[in-house]
Design a protein around this nucleic acid. Structure first.
Lengths: 329, 329
DNA sequence: CAACGAATATGTAACGTTTCATATCGAAAG
DNA sequence: CTTTCGATATGAAACGTTACATATTCGTTG
């Protein structure tokens, strides 16, 4: 028996099985082939340990069965959950995931897109911040959680609805002096809707709603100061706080503790994202839960749809409320 | 000007630049070429928006500039940090990362390997549990954090040393009644060394060291019971506990609280991994910090080394101690 | 029994690169 | 002024597939 140093090819299989090259190809592409032929080929392939060379295939077919996933930072629990979901959803459909991390850097994002385009993926699924990404229009693209324009399909949580939900929950739990807190969304838009939804509920009822919106660079200190400045005889001016995300809520909870306030007795606190403690599985705080799994699946779905001609430009997924100890229920 | 529907190829560039195909190839492979030729080619490529087709290249060269990263669960902060490190280190060297998630399932691991081999990656970097992975010996493989056999190179933290470090720290902080707690390592070996190192220090000094080693399936209840069973007049029999990882330490801290014990006043607690809270960046507990970044970089380094003929079969990276509030310092 | 047509196997030409042998060009040497 | 040589551009042959046109086989029909 001939000793092979390199991987066996279809030609080897064809020779081994005593059939034509094209027949081997058919077998591996599930194209009808005489039963006896199929058996012979499969046997031969097994004997030789043949595996199709996906680079040759990709070259010929222009399809690679791989999708690029572009994320700012896979270390953040929300993003890592997303990555997990996307990776699994892709794997379930026979696609592999090419992971790129951008560190929130718009330039890095562009470079990723560049690199990934050259690597001939079948599509890109990205959570990016650069509003003017230059991306080959031939290449399917789905944006997760960031809406850019009608021409780039996006799947996101219902941020506005989530804000409303938070407001309704706080009302239900007896809050009358609400506050919305947000720190820097790098891209204006989607996450501001959380606050809009929150405020809309109170406006509709003729109630006032305070808000403090900070940019990333300002840091958290202004929030601490703001809260301290709104203390009135050992009590806070607000009894229900909605934070734009769980990370902020966790910090705010600490600030409140510093001020000698009890959560949820004195102030109730709701975050957004639905992150869970890695060890216990508990929510870090009461929160509006984003459906990360569905976000991922839907994104993959939209990307891999046969008929991409009339994709919706924005798919909004419903969020839910979960108590995590920072509200009275 | 001719309208192209598909991506331009080297042939197009060659025609546009008025040079031979091979010359274009040279330009894109940094092979010396007359200065004027190079300029002409580069201009033409830019005009046409040419990008090399990495599938054609991969087919020809048998090198793909991509590495598979196999992880059990990217949702766990330790793994996601690892992924981040590996992905960045690979990107820095011009390699892309193909992410596979196995959900701790040995079969899934084998399937990943299979799939990934077929996709002709240049190497695999994996954190797997299946002790008898069938993997093409031609394909470079580096195991992270799990030592299998001398024939498969591995990079890991100095687990034994970390255990010793924990013991020394506890001694230094005045502990005299140590306890080692471990729950299910899916693969026997590496992480047991943490306990071994811990115990060795006390043995050397002629001190006793209690230990409770559980398997994954048993859950955490036995630990709670064990601790409760070692209460003696409102005091625990132990004053220093070393947990095999931070996740366990966090749970144990809760158990201790349930028993009315103060940490670190009554009992000091050290975990292992060095995980940090996603929002505050604080350690969850006092801990032995694994050098995740270096783990990743070293792994990539070992995988991509030119001369892989005499790779060490195990590279042990030093760990450090960090206080996280569950020890007196 | 010849002829036809439906299946289905075969062989070959791409796909877009790299690589290697060959051709071309100038300059230096005889 | 021819020869030789080094340098470098050229063109063709792979790489391992898929897809299409062609060839083969066999069961049916007139």
């Amino acid at each position: 028996m001939k000793q092979r140093d390199s991987a066996p090819t279809m030609k080897d299989v064809a020779r081994e099985a005593g059939v034509a090259l094209g027949t081997v190809s058919k077998v591996f592409n599930d194209i009808p082939v005489g039963e006896d032929y199929r058996k012979r080929v499969e046997e031969a392939a097994r004997r030789l340990g043949y595996q199709v060379n996906s680079y040759a295939r990709g070259l010929k077919t222009n399809r690679t069965c791989s999708v690029a996933l572009i994320l700012p930072d896979i270390t953040h629990p929300f993003f890592s959950a997303l990555a997990q979901g996307v990776c699994s959803a892709l794997a379930a459909r026979g696609y592999r995931t090419i992971l790129s991390i951008t560190a929130y850097d718009p330039e890095a994002e562009q470079k990723c897109i560049q690199m990934v385009q050259q690597n001939k993926v079948d599509g890109i699924i990205g959570l990016t911040y650069n509003p003017e990404l230059d991306i080959d229009p031939r290449l399917p693209y789905v944006s997760i959680d960031r809406y850019f324009s009608p021409s780039v399909p996006c799947v996101a949580s219902d941020n506005f609805g989530g804000g409303q939900l938070a407001a309704e929950k706080l009302l239900e739990l007896g809050c009358t002096r609400p506050l919305f807190l947000r720190i820097g969304s790098r891209v204006p838009g989607e996450s501001d809707k959380r606050g809009d939804g929150f405020e809309s509920v109170f406006r509709q009822r003729g109630m006032a709603c305070a808000a403090l919106r900070l940019n990333n660079e300002e840091g958290l200190e202004p929030i601490r100061d703001f809260l301290a400045g709104h203390m009135d005889g050992g009590q806070l001016d607000f009894d229900g706080i909605f934070c734009v995300n769980d990370a902020l809520a966790v910090r705010v909870r600490d600030f409140l503790a510093e001020l000698g306030l009890e959560v949820p007795e004195d102030v109730q606190l709701i975050g957004f994202d639905g992150l869970r403690h890695f060890a216990t599985g508990d929510f870090y705080c009461s929160t509006i839960v984003q459906p990360v799994g569905r976000l991922a699946e839907t994104g993959v779905d939209m990307l891999l749809r046969e008929d991409r001609s009339n994709l919706p430009s924005l798919v909004c997924l419903p969020v839910t409320y979960a108590s995590g100890g920072t509200t009275k229920e």
